[in-house]
Design a protein around this nucleic acid. Sequence first.
RNA 1: GCCCCCAUCGUCUAGAGGCCUAGGACACGGGCUUUUCAAGCCUGUAACACGAGUUCGAAUCUCGUUGGGGGUACCA
Length: 486
Amino acid sequence: MRTRFAPSPTGLLHIGGVRTALFAWLMAKKTKGTFILRIEDTDRAREVTGAVENILKTLIWAGLKPGEGVVLENGKIAEKGGFGPYVQSKRLEYYLKSAKELVKQGKAYHCFCSTERLEEVRQRQTAAKERVLYDRHCRALTAEEVGERLGRGERNVIRMMVPSEGAVTFQDLIRGEVSIGNEILDDQVLLKSDGFPTYHLAVVVDDHLMQISHVIRGEEWLPSTPKHVLLYRYFGWDLPIFAHLPLLLNPDKSKLSKRQGDVAVEDYRAKGYLKEALVNFIAFLGWNPGDERELFSLAELVQEFSLERVGKAGAVFNIEKLNWLNFQHLKKKSDEEILGMLRGHLVKAGMDGSAFTDSYLLGVIAAMKERSTFVHEFVDKCPYFYKAPAEYDPDVVKKRWKPETRSQLEVLAKELARMGHTGKEDFEAALHRAAASLNIKNTELIHPLRLALSGVGAGPGLYDIAFLLGKDESVRRIFAAIEKLH
RNA sequence: GCCCCCAUCGUCUAGAGGCCUAGGACACGGGCUUUUCAAGCCUGUAACACGAGUUCGAAUCUCGUUGGGGGUACCA
């Protein structure tokens, strides 16, 4: 099996794009086939510099490395494989040759209509509530006339000649048989006046020349597939297998787009989503294993995935589920692995990472793991592990800080200061002793202590916090709180 | 407008005629646990768009309606 992902370099890689890439990649891997990256840069106006590199890096980040086509070699964009070039702007000769061949066979023709005339035709048709199609004006031109105008170097395009009757029927792996009447098919432009092909010509020529066996793409291409089928027939080529994936939707069910939240993979990456979670989540948008399992690694997806189990209806991109998956995948990682990511994050957050030892951070990770969905929460959610609280949550102060708290905490501080060993259970024992000597319940000390140490009312187990901070720092924070809160 | 595709809880989905008084997951509510917050465990609310058929029997098949989406460029 040879599958391909063929994006246009018009910007950042879209979440819908990676899903298409993922499905194509999975199919290739599953069958020990090849996954190819081809760049469809036939619209020069929309091209964005750096887009190819971004797309490639994002794919690789997600684990979807192309085995052929446009690849990254030593950090540089390169091409690999025997069917190149893999960038369409470098393949102009193929498209020109193909288009000319069709003209010669009478299956395509030169069209000299101006954009103004085209626009006029469109408007007339719209007003008359007719189908908006090219009126095939230039089909009537004689060979002499065409030759003459071509000789003058007049601007023209090449359009495919679509039969006005009959219908095109083709098989889609996901949707079964799809049929569209020829009468609604346009005499599609194949070669633009700038010499570049349109998508329709380029995709057919390249998929054939590159021996793509399965064309896996979004459902938005379904309506133009008949044109492609026609083109395959005109050229006398075998059809690939088509699989049109259901669309990814905004919460309002329209096609996933910008302006309704983030759509670039990079956005999610920047927010701290794990690639494992994103891939897992995206795979389940339209696909499922048929049983109750939900957590999948990329390798497991390769084992289980099949296009037969891809659904037909569009799927809403639901961030809540993604968050849950991120939590699950984060929990699956070893503390050591998280440590590496946390160190990276500390640096990014502008903190002096070297101020904390591995074992200290590992302690923070153990304490916070059940409470964190993202790696950055090992910092954001518990700043008190990195520096003493500068202020105290007013609500918690109101609830837990009584007039007698001050003197009680002083007793506790003395107990703590006297400890010989400073294990987690020693803090607990010391607090119990303090409470006993004051003749109060443990909780009356526990909550004020939590407030003094962390500045907030919620978090990991109190003794975990105290143990991690250590005896001296805990005592310091108690006195700091007494001073600030009276 | 025209064409194509789609239609099960709010969301992702299981379901390929009887196993469905429709299952799971996220989210939401309640409970247990507990020094707090989480996590975990238990539990609750919640869906076959509608209408005709076919059939002994339909979420599952057919047709229609409605709704939604996509397409309709010298963009992909």
